[in-house]
Simulated assay, not measured.
Amino acid sequence: MQTVNIHNAKTNLSRLVDQAAKGEPFIIAKAGKPMVKVVPIDQPASAQMRRIGFMVGQFSVPDDFDHMGREEIEQLFGANA
């Protein structure tokens, strides 16, 4: 991903925005420190794209999940609590 300093971004804003709209996001930095990331509005965040269904089929939840460890918990905290 391209990083541009703030002065360069101001000078070339139209070109950079056109590139971002075509799917080439960029980062604007000030004194070498990244400040903002410019991405197209309709492009979902990359974390959202990767996370949907990422664990499908990798584990299963036991049928007694809601009751697992009940006896131990009752012993620790008392059955009347």
Rank of each mutant, 00 (worst) to 15 (best):
F77P: 01
P40H: 08
V39R: 09
L13V: 04
A47Q: 10
N12H: 08
T11A: 11
S60I: 03
N80E: 12
V36P: 00
V17K: 03
A9K: 00
V61P: 03
A21R: 10
F65P: 03
P34L: 01
N5W: 01
M55A: 15
I73D: 09
P40Q: 10
I41G: 09
Q58C: 09
V56C: 07
D66Y: 09
A20W: 00
S60P: 00
A29Q: 00
D66V: 04
M55W: 13
D42F: 07
Q43P: 02
H67T: 15
N80M: 09
S46P: 07
S14H: 09
V39F: 06
F26Q: 01
E71R: 13
Q58T: 14
P44D: 04
L16I: 00
N5C: 06
A79D: 11
M49A: 15
D64W: 05
R51A: 15
P40E: 09
P25M: 08
I6N: 06
M35Q: 11
R51F: 13
M35G: 05
R50P: 03
F77C: 07
P44H: 04
I73H: 10
G32N: 02
P44W: 02
H7F: 08
R50F: 11
Q58R: 12
S60G: 05
N8W: 03
K37M: 15
D63Q: 10
V39G: 05
L76F: 08
P44C: 03
A31D: 14
P34K: 01
V61K: 10
A79Y: 09
D63W: 03
V17Q: 03
I73E: 12
F54Y: 12
S14D: 13
D42N: 14
G32W: 02
I41M: 13
S46T: 12
M55L: 15
N8T: 10
N12W: 04
I6E: 08
Q19I: 00
P62M: 08
K22T: 07
F26S: 00
A47L: 12
H67Y: 13
N5H: 04
A9I: 00
F65G: 04
V17D: 02
I41F: 14
I52Y: 12
A31K: 12
A79V: 11
N5P: 01
V56G: 06
K22N: 13
Q43T: 14
V56E: 13
V4Q: 02
N80H: 11
P34G: 02
I41Y: 12
N12S: 05
V4A: 00
K37D: 09
D66K: 09
G53R: 04
A20R: 02
Q48V: 13
N12P: 01
E24W: 05
G69I: 06
G32K: 01
E74Y: 10
Q75Y: 07
T11S: 05
I52N: 14
A81Q: 12
V4H: 01
D18V: 06
E24V: 07
S60Q: 06
V17H: 00
H67M: 13
I41P: 02
